[in-house]
Design a protein around this nucleic acid. Sequence first.
RNA 1: GGCCGAGUGGCGGAAUGGCAGACGCACGGGACUUAAAAUCCCGGGUCCGUAAAGGGCGUGCGGGUUCGAGUCCCGCCUCGGCUACCA
Length: 974
Amino acid sequence: MPRYDAKRIETKWQTYWDQQETFKVGEFVEGKDKLYVLDMFPYPSGEGLHVGHPEGYTATDIVCRHARMQGKQVLHPMGWDAFGLPAEQHAIKTGTPPRITTQKNIDTFRRQLKMLGFSYDWSREFSTTDPDYFRWTQWIFLQLFDSWFDSEYEWIGPDGKQRVGRARPISELPIPEKVKAEGEDATRHYQNRHRLAYQHEAPVNWCPKLGTVLANEEIIDGKSERGGHPVERIPLRQWMLRITKYGDRLIDGLEGLDWSDSIKSLQKNWIGRSEGAEVDFYVGAGGSDADLEQGFTAWKSSRSETGFSEDPEADVLRIYTTRPDTLFGATYMVLAPEHPFVDRLTTIEQKQAVETYRKQATLKSDLDRTDLAKEKTGVFTGSFAINPVNGEKIPVWIADYVLISYGTGAIMAVPAHDLRDWEFAVEFDLSIIPVVEPPENYEPSKDEQALEAEIAGEKRTPFSGLGTAIHSGEFDGMKTADFKKEITARLVEQGLGKGAVNYRLRDWLFSRQHFWGEPFPIWHELDEDGKITGLMRPDPEESLPVELPEMKEYKSAGTPEPPLSSAPDEWLYKTGTDGKRLLREVNSMPQWAGSCWYYLRFADPKNSERFIDPENEKNWLPVDLYIGGGEHAVLHLLYARFWHQVLFDRGHVTCPEPFQKLVNQGMILGDVELTGFQQTDGTWVSAKDVTESDESETKWIEKASGKPVTIIRLESDQVQKQGEDFVLVDQPDISVNSRAYKMSKSRGNVINPDIVVEQYGADALRMYEMFMGPLEATKPWSMSGVDGVSRFLGRVWRLIIDEKQEEVALSDAVSDEAPDEDQLRILHKTIKAVSEDIEKLSFNTAISRMMEFTNAMGPLKTRSKEVLSDFVLLLSPFAPHIAEELWSVLGHAETLAYQPWPAYDEALLQESVVEIPVQVNGKLRSKVSVAADADQATMQQTAEQDETIAQHLEGKTIVKAIVIPGRLINFVVK
RNA sequence: GGCCGAGUGGCGGAAUGGCAGACGCACGGGACUUAAAAUCCCGGGUCCGUAAAGGGCGUGCGGGUUCGAGUCCCGCCUCGGCUACCA
C-alpha cells in the first residue's frame, strides 16, 4: 500500500540530487539572468540545528528553486561561521582541540541541512576556520592595515557615483615636514596612527571568568552575554578598526538598498550621527593657576591668529556639543574620570577625593554606571576653566556620566538646557543660567517635569528644546537653529572652535584574547629588552595564511594575556632579515571577521590566487537576496558593509554595497503556554494580580501583598476565554496567562527539527514553517499545525497516486484527456497566485492557494494529468521531495529542478458569470450574478431588480449609485 | 526614557479603500469500519429570531475623511523587540 511515505521519498531524492550534482552551479553564462541568494551562514554549535534555522533556509530555497525553473542561473551556497568561543571553552574543559569539535559539529549541521533537501551547491561549501579561507581574511586585514582614510578625497567609483572620502594606501599618506624631520621611525609611528587598522590602549571590558576581553555588544546589563559573568574595565593594548570614518558612507549607502525601513533606521540609529561643534575652553596650567584670567586673554588673542588647532594643546579642554547656542549657559565643565587631563587639573586639596572617585569608576561595571547612577555622582577637581564666549571662570568636575569614549570625553555643562547637567547641578548646587527661552505655550515634557526642583525658593524645570536665545549678549533674540550656525562661524573666526560631527558608533574593537580565531598577520618589533616598540611588520601576502600553533593548553592564565602568548617559541618569535627580533601578535580576530566577507568567497571558493576573481565578483555580486535573523540587523551587517566599502575604495570589488535586498525572518517561539498562579496554600490568584519580581524573571509575586506565588502550567481544557482574558473553567473569576515564549533549554520548549523530520518528513517541516505566517513575523510553534500540512501533502499524494496498489502507480482518476474549463481555471488561478506570492515572499498565502487547488481537485472523478503535472511544478519549491516523486510517477525521467515554471493564461482565469455584492448605504444586502463583462448600466439594472434590493430601495430616492464593474454595487439612498 | 513593530474568531493567520475572517489548526456532527486509526462529507464570529428566512453588533479604544475604512488621517491604550546618561 504505497501511502505517502516521506522518509522513503526523501532519502531517495536527496541521494539523487547528490549523485547527479543537480544544484551545482555551472560556468557563468553571459547574458543569462543571475540570482545570488544567501542565507546567513550558521555557527555550527554542538546542539545541532534549531527550528529557527530552516525557516530562513526554506524561504531562500523556495526562491532559488523557483528562479532555476524560470531559467535563471542561481548561486545558492552554504558554509560555516565556525570560529568562536564555545569550541574553545569545550577545549578548555575536555582538552579536545577546537578543530576536532568544530569538524564534528559541522558534520552534524551538514547532515541536518541535507536532510531538509535544500538545493545548495555543496561543492562551494567552506568554513571560516579553513586555512584556505582565513588566509584571505588575514589578507583583507592587511588591506585595512595598509589603508588610511582620506576624508577630502573626491572621486568617481566604478559605479559612476561621485563620492567624497576614500580609503587609500598608507604609502600615499602625506607626512608633515615636522614628522619627516624626526626620522623614519617617527614617520612609521605617524602612519600607524592613521591606519584603518590601528592599535589603541583603551579601557576594555575584561571578564575574568571567561578570561577574555569583550566588546561592548557582548555585554548585556553589565554582564557577559555568554554566561552572564561580571565584567571589569581595565586598560589594554587592542586592535581597532576605524569604522567611524565610514559613518557617513554607511548611512548614505543605505539609500539604494531594498531593505525594510525599520532595519535601515536601526542602522542609522546605531551609527547615531550628530552635528555640533568642538570648542576649546582655556584651563591654563591647571591646578591652582592664579593667572588664569590673564592667560586666557593672551591665549584668546593668539588663537585668533593661529586658528583652531588640529589637536588640542595642554592648556585647553576640548569639548563636543550639539548645542553651541547654549555656550553662554555653560556654568561648569565635566571630564570623564578616565580623561588624560584629570591628573594635571586636580589640585592638591582635591587629589584624595578625585583619586577615590576614579578608582570607584574603574571598578564600576557598566551596570553600576547605568543602574545605580540614577543619582548623579562626581567630584570637583579644584581647577577652573574660562568660558571662551564670556570670559566667565567656571569649575571643572569629573563625573562618570560623561563617557571617555564619546566625543572628546569632556563636556561643557549647560544645566538649564540639558537634563543630565541639570540633575548634576541641582545635586551639587552649581549655578544654572537659562539661555534659551521656550516657545510660547510651551508645556514641559514628562522628563522635564520629573526633574522639577526648588532653586532659590522657586520651582523650576530644565528645558531641552529649541527656542530663542536670552542672556547671550549680542545674540539675544536669535532662534536656536540660526544661533547654532552663527556662533559656530564666530568660533571658527576666533580660532576657538569648529563645526564637528560625532557618531554614537565607536571604532570597532577588533581583537580578542582567544585561541580559536584568526591570528593577525602582524609582527611586533622588539627593543633590546624584548619590549614592544610600537613598530610593526605585516606578514608578506604570499606567506599567508598564518596558521594557529599546536597548543597543549587553551586556557589563558586568567590574565588578559591571550592564550596564544603561551604558544611555542618558534611560532611566537623570529628574527627579521635585518636582525631585528620580532614577536608575533598574540591577539586573535573576533568571530565577526570571518562573516564579514564570506559572501564574496562563495562566488569563487577555490581561488588560490586571489580572495575573489574580478570576473566572478562582477558576475555574481551583489547578493540579490539575503535572509537571516534580526539579531544581526545591526552589527554583522554594519561590519560587513564597512569591509566591503573599504575593498571598494581600494579597487578590489566593483559594487558599493554587498547586500541588495535584505529580509529578516521572524523568530519562532515555543508552543503557547497557559499559566495560572497559586498561593502557597493552593488558592488561585488572578494573573492580573501578580507581577514578575524584580529579582528574577522566574519568580512571581502577588502585587498587593508582595508574597511569592507558584506558577502552574495548565491544559487548554482547564481554561476558557472570557472577554479579553483567559480564565479557569472552574473559577471564572481567576484569569490566567496565555503566551508563547522564546525557545530555550531552561524552559524546555525547544523543538528539535530531527524529531519533526522523523515523524512528518522534511517536506512537511518546510511547508509548516512557511505556512505558519508571514516570514518576517514572530510566530509560535504548534505541532498540530505540522499535522495539518502533512495531511495536505497526503491529499496531494492521493490526487495522483492510487494508494490501493502495491506499487507506486497513477490513480485511475488521472486522465490523459484534455482538461475541462473548470480545471484549467483553477490551475491558472493557482499558477498566478503562487507565482506572485513567491515574488512577494508571501509563502503562507502561496500554500493556502495550493490547498485551495487540492480542495477543488479532490472531489473530481477524473483529473487531468496535464493540470496535475503543472501543479506538481508549483509545489516543488516548497516540498521538493514529494514533487520529484510525483513528477516521476507522472511519467518524467528527469528531475523537475530545471523544468520551465508554468505560465498562466489570463484568458483562462475569467469566469463567464460573476457574483457581485450589492450594498445599500454601504451595507451588504444581497448578491447578484451578472456576466463578467457586464457594463455599469446592466449591473445596476440587475441589482435593482433583485428582490431584496428592491425592498430596500422601496420608497427611497437613489442619490447615487456606485457601480464598479466586476466588483461591487453600492446604492446611496435617502 | 528613545526608536521600531504589532493588536482581526478558541488558536495561527487572510483581505490593490470595495462581500471581514481565505487557508489551516482545534472543536462539534455524520459517513466508512466489528472497532479504532486513516480517510471523506457537513457545521460554526457574536447576539436576537425556533433549526429557516431575516436582522442588530463586530478587526484594541475615541474621533475624522469617504458612497464605502481592518486598510487612510488625528489622539490614546496594551503587548512585543531593540536600545539605553552619546553631550
